[in-house]
């Protein structure tokens, strides 16, 4: 198997998500601590959830990168120009784009199956608290939302 070169975009976005998930996980741990319910199972649940959430995002980003790399040297004809306000006619997808679509759908199914396995492990094994492990899965979305807000603020400031 050949080695995979990770694109800077993938590295950068995964880094941002990892940082966001880390900060939000620390906040979750602090909430548990304040409520007096923090113990090692919560910590292990958070760590398991964090590892899975970041890994899941990274795998998704790698699939996207792979799909983009498949377009190297492929020329797609420009969409036909239309009158103002008119929708361009639907064009057939190129074979590479169709392949990328299938690959992405397959990757999604695989990652969801992995999430089910992780959730079952977190619920069934007594050393993990399932609730923090599952809550962490929602943190990448919150991180993207916060990032969007910060970008908007920066644009407004400029």
């Amino acid at each position: 198997m050949g080695s995979v070169t990770i694109q800077p975009a993938v590295r950068q976005e995964t880094g941002k998500i990892a940082a966001g998930v880390g900060v939000l996980s620390v906040l979750t741990a602090a909430v548990y601590l304040i409520l007096g319910r923090f113990n090692y199972t919560v910590l292990l649940g958070l760590l398991l959830g964090m590892a899975f959430a970041i890994g899941n995002f990274f795998l998704m980003a790698l699939t996207v990168q792979h799909a983009a790399e498949k377009m190297n040297g492929v020329e797609v004809p420009a969409e036909p120009e239309t009158e103002d306000g008119e929708e361009p006619p639907q064009q057939e997808l190129s074979p590479q784009a169709k392949q990328a679509k299938k690959r992405m759908q397959l990757s999604y199914m695989g990652r969801m199956a992995m999430l089910v396995v992780m959730a079952v492990v977190a619920i069934k094994l007594p050393c993990f608290d399932a609730v923090p492990a599952l809550i962490v899965q929602l943190f990448p979305r919150i991180t993207v939302f916060i990032e969007g807000l910060m970008m908007k603020k920066e644009q407004n400031a400029q």
Partner: peptide
């Protein structure tokens, strides 16, 4: 799953048009 597939396919076409 369906939406992601469609988005990636269209984005790939966009990359093909403007590498």
């Amino acid at each position: 799953g369906i939406g992601e597939g469609n988005a990636v396919a269209k984005a790939c076409e966009a990359i093909g048009r403007q590498p």
